[in-house]
Computed example of a mutant assay.
Amino acid sequence: MKKKLIFLFLVLGLTSSLLAQPQERLPRTLLPLSVLQDIINESSGELALQNEIYLTGVNRNRRLEEYQNGYFETRFILDRLKEYGYDQAEIIELPTTAKTTWDAEQAELWLVEPLKKKLYDLKDIPATLCQGSVSTDTTAELIDVGPGYSEAFYQGKEVKDKIVLVYGSPERARQLAVEKFGAKGIIACTSSHPEFDRDQLGWNSIRVGEKDKPAFAFMVSERTYYDLKQMLDRKTKVKIRAVVKSQMVPYREEMAMGWIKGTDKAEQELVLTGHLFEGLSKQGANDDASGCVAILEAGRVIKKLVADGKIPPPKRSIRFLFVPEISGTMAYLKKYPEVARKFYANLNEDM
């Protein structure tokens, strides 16, 4: 994390008056040695990590009141922006065409046969339930369809009214397993690095539209996937119970913004961005809370060093945008075209 912060400051140095100071420089850097040392001494990877832990250290199911009163992530960032003394800090509500969004209240996945065992619960691991899953209380036989994205994986298998076990994308499998062959739901595994953690789950979603058959999908770890697959490979009859309670709730899109005022080039701004949201159900510590806390810490260090008289204020203003991924950036630029025209350069910290 600290290396990421130092890189940010090297880029920021290009837009400041620091370059004009004829001092000793470290090899392959554009900052004076004394300034670089002050940055290294003040910047804190530990503080950035603490902020990341507050944001995403524990997976949590979003509270219903957040959809009306504001999201936890933007409130947290706003509090830190104010604490660190940014010249301007606010939460901005963004225009959106979406009126509602999916939200889950309850989800449990049970092994019923050959023994009774709870596998996952939304309260414990919110990532287990795929966004878009419909309400259900289904008990059905489990059948393995491999990756599930091609009709070849279904040949000779009767999946109608059953739950399919998939190693791959639940949405790609849904399009065939549910829509064409009549499966009730999906259990999927898409662990990107099982060599690091066999119990890891990845966030995922299915797209159930008005014209689609209702469906649900659960994500499981590689360990759980192979436990289930081995039972099926031994010709053991496996039954699963899936309980889901979900709903559509009013949707609002918002972001946090921080700003550090420049001294004499008000028509130009350096913009640092990171996305707080990638859909409202997913909470990604790496993608992209890590980027958000990195630029947050960069701003804190700038304000502190300027206040201590160790560096001059930046010539260009620096704007920090903590946005919903892609949609939030576009909505912000559309809402504030006069601000967008001031953008001199953008550094996006994504993972």
Results as ranks from 00 to 15, higher is better:
Asn286Leu: 12
Val339His: 15
Asp212Ile: 00
Thr15Gln: 12
Asn346Phe: 15
Trp203Leu: 07
Gly45Gln: 06
Tyr251Gly: 11
Leu26Asp: 11
Asn348Leu: 12
Leu165Asn: 05
Asp144Tyr: 14
Trp110Ser: 02
Glu90Met: 14
Leu109Asn: 03
Tyr226Lys: 08
Arg80Asp: 06
Arg62His: 05
Ser135Tyr: 01
Asp212Thr: 04
Glu222Ser: 11
Ala127Val: 06
Gly284Ser: 04
Gly148Tyr: 03
Lys310Tyr: 06
Ile302Trp: 09
Phe320Met: 04
Val35Asn: 01
Glu65Thr: 11
Leu18Ala: 06
Trp110Leu: 00
Arg223Val: 07
Asn69Pro: 06
Ile186Gln: 00
Phe9Asn: 13
Lys265Cys: 08
Thr56Ser: 15
Val58Leu: 14
Gly148Trp: 03
Lys235Met: 10
Glu210Asn: 14
Gln155Ala: 11
Ala188Cys: 09
Leu94Ser: 05
Asp227Glu: 15
Phe322Arg: 03
Lys117Tyr: 03
Pro250Ile: 02
Asp144Thr: 06
Asn204Ile: 07
Pro170Thr: 08
Tyr86Ser: 06
Lys239Ala: 11
Arg75Tyr: 09
Pro337Gln: 00
Ile302Gln: 07
Tyr84Ile: 10
Val208Ile: 14
Glu210Val: 14
Val271Thr: 13
Lys334Leu: 13
Phe216Val: 04
Ala98Ser: 13
Ser133Phe: 04
Gln50Lys: 15
Leu10Cys: 13
Ala173Asp: 10
Arg319Gln: 10
Lys4Gly: 11
Cys189Tyr: 11
Tyr167His: 15
Tyr120Cys: 04
Tyr344Ser: 15
Leu5Ile: 01
Ile91Ala: 12
